[in-house]
Each structure stands twice: as C-alpha cells, then as structure tokens.
Amino acid sequence: MVDEEIADLAQALLALDEQRAVAVARALIDGGADPQAVLQRGLADTMLEVGRRWNAGELFLPEVVAAAEIFRLCNEIVEPALIAAGGRTLGHRVVMATVKGDLHDLGKNMVGAMMKTAGFEVHDLGKDVPAERIVEAVRELEPSIVGLSSLLTTTVPEQRAVLAALEEAGLRRSVKVMVGGAPVTEEWARQIGADGFAPNAPEAVRAALALVGDERLAGA
C-alpha cells in the first residue's frame, strides 16, 4: 500500500503534477510512512530519473527546474518527519545561495535543479543572502559543497567576502566552494581561492561530482 503510494508520488513528480505530488507526500507522512523511504524512493530516485531523461533529450531544463521545485515542496513535508525520526541522508549535501545585494536566482536555480538530478541533497538559501547566513548554514548542515552565484559585476566581489567569512569562522577547510554567474570567470574563481567554477548548469554538476570524488560524471 505504502509502496503504491510512493510509486504514485514518483509518478506525480515525473508528471510535474505539483498538487498531486504534494497531496500524496502529505498523505504518506501523515499516514506514518517511513520518511527516509519517501524521500529516497519517492523523490530522490525520481530526480535521478528526471536527470536521465534530460540527458536523453526527452526533458528540457524548464521541466527539470519545475521538478526540482516540486521536490522542494514535498521535501518540506518530509523533512520534519525525517528529523524527528533521527535519520537522514541522501548523498552529498550542497548549500547554494545568490550572494548579498543580488536578486537574480536564475542561474542558481538551474544549477540547483541539475544538482538534484545527480543525487545531491540541495539546500537553497535563496537570493540576497548575507555571508553570515551562509556561514551559519555551513556550520549547521555540514555540506560538502557551497555554491555561490552572482549576476551583477557589482555583487561578484561579495563571493570573496563569503570565502573570507568562512575562513574566519574556521569552516573553510571543511567545505568545497564553487562560484558561478554571468560575470564570473575561472580566473576570478582562482583569484579568490574558490575550489570550483562552472560556466553553465551541466558543467556545474560535472565539477561538483569531481569535487566530491564521484566517479559518475552525470550529463557527460
């Protein structure tokens, strides 16, 4: 019965049916289903399937982004139960943010969505995020990777500020930092001492997998 409902959740996610996915996830959790199973088999595995279909050219990026958004909504339902049950892990954890002063989250959302299709557990802090909040999230979530995005030339320097704040908090060595955004270059990434850079979403996934030492190069 629960298996059927989890399959139903997976199907709703694949069909990009937000209402049904959220309803099924709610019913599963309210009905006492194992949150780890709901997250893994209902949502995370389905995102891998979304990634496979993207790679095969059957789905396009806007659909991947829509799937990632439904994933996020469902995860909001599953997560409290998961924490209460004391169990949780999906794979490598990524914290992402558009830096302070920048309200553009298009690139970050593309990258976040693609990351989910590669099995990463993505925590999106949103846009216009101050360095202190990013440091806090790193301390709390202990991610493998932090991804920083900026679209404006005027907010790119904020990426350096985040790195400095991580350094100051003594967290810089525990996490890999990736930077991206239209004005960001590989050279800039090197200059500020970031660990990774990618010019687009598919490359970001490849770079992230390389940073965490994953052999799969999804999207390759």
Binding site: P62, V65, H104, L106, N109, M110
Partner: peptide, 11 residues
C-alpha cells in the same frame, strides 16, 4: 529581476 524558467507558460 525574476525568471521564466519555472513558469508553466514556459513549459
């Protein structure tokens, strides 16, 4: 300042 990637209209 938003984006159209996630809009149903786009899909």
């Amino acid at each position: 300042g938003g984006h159209f990637l996630g809009q149903a209209h786009t899909r």
